[in-house]
Computed example of a mutant assay.
Amino acid sequence: MKNVVAPVKNVVAAQDAFDNLCNRSLGVPGIGLIHGETGYGKTTAVTYLFNQVNGIYVRALSADTPSSLLGRVMGELGAQPMARTARMVDYILEHMSMYERPLFIDEADYLMDDVKLLETVRDLYDCTEVPVVLIGMDQIARRISTRRQFFNRISEWVEFKPADLEDVQIAADAMLDDGIGIDVDLLDELRRQAKGEMRTIAIGLDKIERLAKANELDCVTLAHWGSQPFKNNR
Rank of each mutant, 00 (worst) to 15 (best):
N51F: 06
F150C: 07
G75R: 14
V73R: 14
A6Y: 01
T44S: 12
L176S: 04
L33Q: 11
V132T: 14
L103Y: 10
R84P: 01
I180M: 00
A63M: 12
L70R: 11
L222C: 01
L21W: 08
G196D: 03
V184C: 04
V168Q: 07
L111K: 04
D90N: 07
Y99A: 07
Q193L: 01
T65L: 02
A141W: 04
R153S: 09
T200E: 10
L93I: 15
Q80T: 14
W157T: 00
E197H: 09
P66S: 11
V121G: 13
V28S: 06
G32W: 02
D106T: 05
R24V: 12
A63F: 13
A108E: 01
V115E: 12
K116R: 13
L33Y: 08
L217C: 03
A108S: 13
I34G: 02
G196C: 05
S67I: 05
W157I: 03
D106K: 09
E100C: 01
V121R: 10
Y125W: 09
G39Y: 01
I154V: 14
I154P: 10
V133L: 15
L26H: 13
K161H: 11
T43V: 00
N3G: 01
I56W: 06
G136F: 04
P102Y: 05
G196Q: 13
D185A: 11
I92Y: 12
T44N: 06
L49R: 06
Q15E: 15
